[in-house]
Write a protein that binds this DNA or RNA. Sequence first.
DNA 1: CGAAAACGTTAACAAAAGATAAGGATTTAA
DNA 2: TTAAATCCTTATCTTTTGTTAACGTTTTCG
Lengths: 199, 199
Amino acid sequence: MDKQCKINAFRIGLAQFVTFEENEWEILSQHLSFSTLKKKEHFIVEGKVCDYMCFIARGGVRYYHIKDGQEITGYFSFENELMSAYKSFLKRTPNTNYIQAIEETELVMISHQNLQHMLNHPLLALKMERFGRLVAEHYICCYEDRVTAFITQSPEERYTMLEKTAKDIFQRIPQHFIANFLGITPVSLSRIRKRTLLQ
Amino acid sequence: MDKQCKINAFRIGLAQFVTFEENEWEILSQHLSFSTLKKKEHFIVEGKVCDYMCFIARGGVRYYHIKDGQEITGYFSFENELMSAYKSFLKRTPNTNYIQAIEETELVMISHQNLQHMLNHPLLALKMERFGRLVAEHYICCYEDRVTAFITQSPEERYTMLEKTAKDIFQRIPQHFIANFLGITPVSLSRIRKRTLLQ
DNA sequence: CGAAAACGTTAACAAAAGATAAGGATTTAA
DNA sequence: TTAAATCCTTATCTTTTGTTAACGTTTTCG
């Protein structure tokens, strides 16, 4: 996947939030960097401060915690989505989890420093603030739904819902990661699947 | 509680995100409105589009869903916090839950229309965008922690943690609301409390 | 290619949570 | 003030989940 192709994907992906004019894009694109993660390679590990927010041009990652020596996968991001250890990135605090590529993954990255630079750049500030706001607001809405699911639905209902709304990820992600994501154990998910099949 | 007192509380509360200069504040404060909710009065009900984002100058509210005729309380907000049905407010879609005062509650409110007006106001735009961004980012961090708790902790662990970090809300909120917030039934919370006391 | 690792299912048992109902204490409101 | 509503606890029973381990299959990688 060549650089120009990644940049294009990035620009299209951003259009969901803000559209940049040519002159703005000119500046912004000079503040990007690029990286590739091999499968199982980590984007960030516990204890490090996250220095980049990324756009996934290709591939996918999982977010996981380690608790009592066990990995617990809490989330996934795939191509055309943004990805970062937000809290660490935003607050400049050590990250408390891990982000790992589950496939070969191509990233377009903005360093924290470059982002600050753009937020202070007279020609870009307003649009970058808006971009940041809209991205954050978008994720708030996602989180709202996720928390609501934990509050109002049983694990079985959460599974059924996921199957309806994102069936494709079952082809792409090991089932025990999905179990974690639903807040249950892999064994329990296996049972739920059997139950819901029989009905 | 008089109006000036509410405005002051609001200004101090905002300082956590952005500080407004006198001339900016002059304009902003003309875009505010005020309201009082009596105990059990609703700020918003299911199906309505939320038109205000609020600052709670005094009092508190709970957010709840109705599922199978049952109320399930998912969150609380108290004085000096912001409060809104964010997703509905941001996306202009019908709200899917209820927000109800649990005490007599004093609000400072910004209507969606006034917010847009300020976001388009040349002297205020940048700061309002930043304000919106920082608020949203702040809530993302809160949500991140909340989801992590659901993923990595048992109900009992979530309860213990809550007792450590927010003991005060137990004096202020009926226990069955807290049970919902933890993702369990009131009966189950009562059992957990007994268990953890004995140990 | 072949050994090792990863993965999903199943079983058996223990632990926890849900559902329902009852009882007593407290609060609310007419 | 008194009846009604709210709230928390407890008990009982059912359902679900967690835990551990075993097994067969598939995938990974040297």
